[in-house]
Nucleic acid binder design. Structure first.
Lengths: 103, 103
DNA sequence: TGTTCGTTTGGCAATATTGCCAAATGAGGA
DNA sequence: TCCTCATTTGGCAATATTGCCAAACGAACA
């Protein structure tokens, strides 16, 4: 309730936000998010999309998962990833407008 | 018009998006964006807000400017920064929902 | 012209991120 | 149980980001 407490909470919020933004701030991870906007995908699908080593893709997925952007689910031998919060996709339009306004 | 061209354009888009997202992916820069949501501010205001060396804040502002998120304007001795595309602010709500869904 | 004020730039050390390879894991099937 | 398949983890080198200090800059004003 004090100003100090308010400031602390806000700072923590800011860091949580930064974690989510950071998770989105990489070309491969943006591609993955975009692709997951069309439905769930297994790691092998995403590896083909991104074109990097599967271990690298797996680490990107871990970043996305730890930030809360995606969730995973094993079915049979494969693990499928899904977007948790689709509102993220809408943001791309805003990003495009930043790019357009800039160029 | 070929698939190749399409893919190249898309890749470039992805990298442009990543640049904007990267610019937002730091606590100090998120604080700055949030503050600029309330109106234009000079560097000195933002330094007080962020609490780092002014040279550091200036470099953060450069990142934001290069990505197209903010613009600057000198008036007298001070330089004022403004948000170029306010839709970015709306995105914070989406980010919060990612955080809430995750915790 | 010289000085001050607000801001940016250069340079550097500390830290974080990225991507590959090799090894580990763990569920499913022989 | 042993083997295979899909994925994750550990480790490492290459690269990028961050923040400080000192120096440079450029507009305003004496």
């Amino acid at each position: 309730m004090t100003k100090n407490t308010d400031k602390l909470v806000t700072l923590e919020r800011i860091h949580e936000r930064a974690k989510v933004m950071k998770a989105m701030a990489h070309p491969s991870r943006l591609m993955i998010i975009d692709e997951l906007g069309h439905g769930e995908r297994c790691v092998c699908d995403l590896q083909e999309l991104v074109g990097h080593d599967m271990s690298t893709v797996s680490k990107h997925l871990k970043v996305l998962k730890d930030s809360g952007i995606v969730k995973d689910e094993r079915r049979g031998k494969q693990i499928f990833y899904t977007l948790r919060v689709p509102c993220i996709l809408k943001f791309f339009h805003c990003i495009e407008s930043v790019i357009d306004a800039h160029n």
